[in-house]
């Protein structure tokens, strides 16, 4: 199976370790993974901030770059939801506005074959034990677009529960938003910070060393809050936990 990694612009620029972890993990599971160099950004920030027309060329680029792959895997619930939930809407609106069906046609093929990482593992590869080893206490925050947008359900938890050495502890108020919300974080900084601080306090109350999530944007906000609040926890993307093995452990 020819699988493309859609890393997302945020991960590419700020979190290359997450990208390396996805590559390592998928290869270990026998997947032939490629990183098409022409990929950039799915256009989510543009779309959600009210710049739908600026998001359109980015969506079209996504459709063209990934057209020939059998599956597209992304370690981001929100970018995954952008493609799966909002790309169809983008195409529809463009047509309704009398701008033809080109966008719709370019986007249609990539929408159903785009998977968030944990979905790809559980639904396509049908594995929950990925052979990982991670001897730490971990609490898991399900990010909003993964939880409510993509409906990831208990897939991430099942994957984490199968990791050897990992002690998974329940996060109180897990379903509540962390307060990142893209440009919300800077347009409504007070509310965003209050939500982030509450999430961090809840995470701390579990006694876990690691706060795990499937979206580095949320973790950037929570990690920045944690270090400012001087908590001893650290944020780790789920891909890095699942990629970690006894021979090659993650930090």
């Amino acid at each position: 199976m020819r699988v493309a990694l859609f890393l997302t612009c945020v991960n590419d620029t700020l979190y290359p370790d997450t990208g390396r972890a996805v590559v390592r993990l998928l290869r270990r599971l026998g997947v032939d993974v490629d990183f098409p160099m022409a990929q950039t950004c799915c256009g989510q920030a543009h779309y959600n901030t009210g710049y739908r027309h600026e998001a359109e060329p980015l969506a079209r680029r996504f459709g063209e770059v990934f057209a020939d792959y059998e599956a597209i895997v992304t370690p981001s619930g929100s970018c995954g939801a952008m493609v799966r939930e909002l790309y169809p809407r983008l195409g529809e609106r463009a047509r309704a506005e009398g701008r033809g069906d080109t966008l719709e046609r370019v986007l249609a093929p990539v929408v159903p074959k785009t998977y968030e990482l944990t979905e790809f593992l559980v639904d396509v590869l049908e594995v929950t034990d990925v052979g990982a080893y991670y001897p730490h206490t971990v609490t898991y925050h399900p990010t909003c677009h993964g939880l409510r947008g993509l409906g990831l359900g208990d897939r991430p938890r099942r994957l984490l529960q199968a990791v050897r050495g990992l002690d998974l502890v329940e996060l109180p108020g897990a379903d509540e938003c962390c307060g990142f919300g893209g440009t919300f974080a800077v347009k409504n900084p007070d509310v965003s910070a209050a939500m982030g601080a509450d999430k961090v306090r809840n995470a701390e109350s579990t006694g876990a060393e690691v706060l795990c999530a499937g979206d580095n944007s949320c973790l950037m906000h929570l990690g920045g809050t944690m270090s400012r609040l001087r908590t001893r926890m650290r944020p780790v993307h789920i891909a890095e936990i699942l990629a970690s093995t006894e021979e090659d452990p993650a930090a």
Binding site: N11, Y15, M37, A193
Partner: peptide
């Protein structure tokens, strides 16, 4: 609005795409 309550993330030595190219994936 960001740094009032949150630290900035550390920047990596190289973006993923450079690593991918340098190490041939």
């Amino acid at each position: 609005a960001w740094t009032g309550t949150r630290d900035l993330p550390a920047l990596p030595a190289e973006p993923f795409r450079d690593w991918w190219q340098r190490t041939h994936g």
